[in-house]
């Protein structure tokens, strides 16, 4: 989808390097992501997928290279950082809903504080988003009262409440019981078709193959493959990718 018009680059990562002490987590990672594109990021555990995603909204600071988001260079400059975080939403593996707030307040907090939205407008928007993820009736509950799948759908709605241009997902279904994975994937599928830019770290190969426009394969801190889902799944170029695919296909 979205392949006809020439899309605008929204995230440009140029030669990103990141070390944790002596450990080299990212080595000169470069990638450009275009508006509306849905990218699946796959690879073995510990290969740097989360680290890469987290450098994009500076939950981790990169050591070298340059990240440009929607024309703004990502740095410690607080103004730029706040501008970028408004545009880039994130969904975490462990949901991270604010446990002391109701579902509704989880959705209205950031729009009211960061976008200075009036409460009534923020609540109306929140209710629309909750309806979109099928949880309108749960608005007054607290996160602990919801199942994992419901919490993750709320977390997606919470990110959407800020109208981000890009959504980052870090293994959004990995902490879920198997019967709840599909309800979350369904929401993500609907989002993908709505045209928002998405970067999804995932082990759900079915989702990657069916929904993504592009697959990036990480291994030991570098991007080994950056290609279409068709070519990645039918004809991976590297031995490491082949080994990874056969492992996820045949279980662990």
């Amino acid at each position: 989808m979205n392949s006809e018009a020439v899309p605008r680059p929204i995230i440009e990562a140029r030669a990103i390097g990141k070390r944790f002490g002596a450990f080299h987590a990212l080595r000169d990672v470069s990638a450009t992501f275009h508006e509306g594109q849905v990218t699946a990021i796959v690879g073995p555990s510990g290969s740097g997928k989360s680290t890469f995603l987290r450098t994009l909204n500076r939950l981790e600071a990169h050591d070298s290279g340059e990240i440009v988001i929607d024309g703004i260079v990502l740095s410690d400059d607080i103004k730029n950082l706040n501008a970028i975080r408004r545009e880039v939403g994130m969904v975490f593996q462990s949901f991270n809903l604010f446990s002391h707030l109701t579902i509704l307040r989880n959705l209205t907090l950031a729009p009211m504080r960061v976008r200075r939205m009036a409460r009534a407008a923020a609540e109306e928007k929140a209710m629309n988003l909750l309806e979109r993820v099928g949880l309108k009736t749960q608005a007054s509950k607290y996160p602990v009262q919801l199942s994992g799948g419901q919490q993750q759908r709320v977390a997606i709605a919470r990110a959407l409440a800020m109208d981000p241009k890009v959504l980052l997902f870090d293994e959004p279904t990995s902490a879920l019981d198997p019967e709840m994975v599909n309800e979350v994937l369904a929401v993500m599928r609907e989002l993908a078709y709505s045209g928002i830019t998405m970067l999804v770290v995932t082990h759900e190969m079915g989702f990657a193959r069916e929904v993504a426009d592009r697959v990036i394969f990480f291994d030991e801190g570098v991007i080994l493959e950056d290609t279409t889902p068709e070519s990645f799944f039918s004809n991976p170029g590297h031995e490491r990718a082949k080994a990874f695919l056969s492992q996820v296909r045949h279980g662990f």
Partner: peptide, 14 residues
Amino acid sequence: PHGQVEAARALGLT
């Protein structure tokens, strides 16, 4: 939990 802080920062809260 640190995840609470990360969620808030990721949403753009100062």
